[in-house]
Simulated assay, not measured.
Amino acid sequence: MTRLSTLLFAVAIPVAFAAPAIAQEGKTLGTVVNGNTTTIFMAADTSDLDMQKLQVWSDFASQHPDIARALAYKPSLIDNEGYAKNHPELGDFFSAHPDIREAMTENPGNFVAIPPRPGE
């Protein structure tokens, strides 16, 4: 009976702490419990994102996945002229969309994200 009580307590505590976060606006993507720490992953609030810029970048990234992946792992490449020179399609894109380059430099996480590894 003690094990059952402990198990119920272990489940109830994270749920109790997660309830206020779940009540907030946004979709809960997942929850991870590690000891006394509960991490709740929520969908980002897109109200402050320029969705048109994001769509233009997304179109480019889907056509050039290797470039998008490289920028995700190393956002400093966004302002690297040598990288842009070695990848003329990126240089052309940034020439045509300097506002997107500026937005990516300020907040690269809004545009590029490290894709999960297999099994993650």
Rank of each mutant, 00 (worst) to 15 (best):
I22M: 06
A23C: 08
A23T: 04
A23Q: 08
A23S: 13
A23D: 03
Q24N: 11
Q24G: 01
Q24H: 05
E25A: 10
E25L: 00
G26V: 05
G26Q: 06
G26L: 07
G26R: 04
K27G: 09
K27V: 07
T28L: 13
T28M: 12
T28Y: 01
L29Q: 03
L29Y: 09
G30M: 05
G30Q: 04
G30H: 06
T31G: 11
T31D: 04
T31N: 12
T31Y: 09
T31I: 15
V32I: 12
V32R: 00
V33G: 01
N34D: 15
G35H: 02
G35S: 02
N36G: 09
N36A: 06
N36I: 06
N36H: 13
T37V: 11
T37P: 11
T38H: 02
T38V: 14
T38L: 05
T38E: 02
T38Y: 06
T39P: 12
T39G: 02
T39V: 07
T39N: 03
I40H: 03
I40D: 08
I40C: 02
I40A: 00
F41Y: 09
M42I: 15
M42P: 07
A43W: 14
A43C: 11
A44G: 11
A44N: 09
A44H: 07
D45S: 04
D45L: 00
T46E: 13
T46K: 08
T46V: 10
S47Q: 09
S47Y: 12
S47G: 00
S47L: 03
S47W: 05
S47K: 05
D48S: 07
L49C: 12
D50C: 01
D50L: 03
D50I: 08
Q52M: 13
Q52C: 01
K53V: 06
K53S: 07
L54K: 09
L54Q: 13
Q55V: 10
Q55M: 02
Q55I: 03
V56L: 11
V56H: 02
W57F: 02
W57I: 04
W57R: 07
W57T: 00
S58A: 11
S58L: 01
D59G: 11
D59I: 07
D59H: 14
D59M: 03
D59S: 14
F60D: 05
A61P: 06
A61S: 10
S62I: 08
S62D: 04
Q63F: 10
Q63I: 08
H64Y: 13
H64D: 02
H64R: 06
H64P: 13
P65R: 02
P65C: 04
P65F: 00
P65L: 06
P65V: 05
D66S: 09
A68I: 08
A68R: 00
A68S: 02
R69G: 10
R69E: 15
R69Q: 15
R69K: 15
A70D: 13
A70L: 01
A70W: 06
A70Y: 00
A70S: 12
L71M: 06
L71Q: 06
L71P: 01
A72Q: 04
A72C: 08
A72S: 11
A72T: 10
Y73P: 14
Y73D: 15
Y73V: 15
K74V: 14
K74W: 14
K74Y: 12
K74D: 15
K74F: 14
P75V: 06
P75E: 13
P75K: 04
